[in-house]
Design a protein around this nucleic acid. Sequence first.
DNA 1: CTTTTTATATACCATTCGGTATACTAAATG
DNA 2: CATTTAGTATACCGAATGGTATATAAAAAG
Lengths: 188, 188
Amino acid sequence: MENQEKILECGLTLFAERGFDAVGVQEIADTSGITKPTLYYYFGSKEGLLDAILSTNFSTMFARLEKAANYQGDVKNTLEEITRTYFSYASSNLTFYRFQLSCWFSPPQSAAFKAIIIYGRRQYTMLENLFQRMAQDHGNMLGRHQRYAASFLGMINTYIGLKASVNLELDETVVRNTVHQFMHGIFS
Amino acid sequence: MENQEKILECGLTLFAERGFDAVGVQEIADTSGITKPTLYYYFGSKEGLLDAILSTNFSTMFARLEKAANYQGDVKNTLEEITRTYFSYASSNLTFYRFQLSCWFSPPQSAAFKAIIIYGRRQYTMLENLFQRMAQDHGNMLGRHQRYAASFLGMINTYIGLKASVNLELDETVVRNTVHQFMHGIFS
DNA sequence: CTTTTTATATACCATTCGGTATACTAAATG
DNA sequence: CATTTAGTATACCGAATGGTATATAAAAAG
């Protein structure tokens, strides 16, 4: 494997285990089998490495999500497809997904939060736009797209958390239950 | 204010702003208007200070929660009372509540996570016991207390998150909606 | 009154931190 | 062949890290 990829992979692993601030650049270099100047050659700084880790991993996630968010009139179906995509991506990229969540919940002035905020906003924007399109067909959803986006993503992340903490298998039943429960919260 | 309390307060503020690892002991001492040996006299280590911050703040939260978790046959009422307690505590102790959440989502080998794990477990245990008592009256809840506890707390934290991100007022309506939505997820 | 205990500060420790100046090598480019 | 460019390593930097040995002052206890 190329040195650059090796650094990205080891960086993610170490950050996900102990956190961005607790891992030193030296340790990342040692684990990757390279030296510090090589790391700085590719990523410029420790935060540059974090940015690169988030950027590369999120790009594949967003690619899948944007396909799933293709609303054509069927609310339930679209929300299920998005939920399925989140569950599937989180299941097969659990290290990254958990790390990304830890960044999102990090203190507001921490490096981890500052680095992830654009990707968090991008998820919200995608979901808000989706709920706005849905509201054109369902008047009772109007003007609530922000809350829908936030609570929908919160619910998805709750169930992804259940996978780790209670060994919940994120199968098709859970997908349907999640969306069913969310829509009941909306339409009643 | 006593030096000890001052350190606890400044420590919480700084940790909540930038994270446990990113804040140095020296800065906490300076902000508190004391010197490092004084901090080490009271708390022994940086992690000792973190433990003390969590311990003192959680003790009041658990005191309120355990009163609220007094199930006497009315599921809806009890869950609403717990939700109300969480919302109320989080609203009036937002700095601590957000910091506590950031610790809970921290990487598994980080100091922050190791320090908070016993309080996280205690919340789950309290909720699991509650759902187990409820299952004695409602057979269809049997054997699911772990998932109920995790998803209930997840839903509560999602709505507390909405307060910060979308300015959602956590009033009585939200309390009832949260429990209604959660129970619909259970009973259908 | 002496002694112990509590609470505080000065000054220091070794180690690690993120980051870099410099040199070297191999491959591509002219 | 000469030169540039990409990639890598040695050896170093000042600053900050968590933590402490020691001294001191006041108060409590004998």
